[in-house]
Amino acid sequence: MIDIKEKLGTIKYDVDKEYPHITVDDAICAKCPHHFCVMACPAQCYTLQNGKLLFNYEDCVECGTCSVACDQGSVTWHYPKAGKGVVYKQG
């Protein structure tokens, strides 16, 4: 089993430190009945720690899955700006 963290290490990112392109509303997540984003996100950007949802945009591959997976209206989703974010070498 290769760990997902190791796999994410194979991806090249140009992270925009100034602008998180996806944000979540903590208040909504706290009441979420399913936390489906945690299962759906292929880049492990959503994790649960002691029942609290943690979100990290740095490893995001901009697939858009969470924008649909979250049906609670917590996710505000944009593409990164100016070519920042994931840069595939293979694709």
Partner: peptide
Amino acid sequence: MEELRRNGVTHTYDLIEKFKS
């Protein structure tokens, strides 16, 4: 997506690892 939601307990990133093994 419907399958993933129905299932609700499997990480997408684990599925590919299962396929590979």
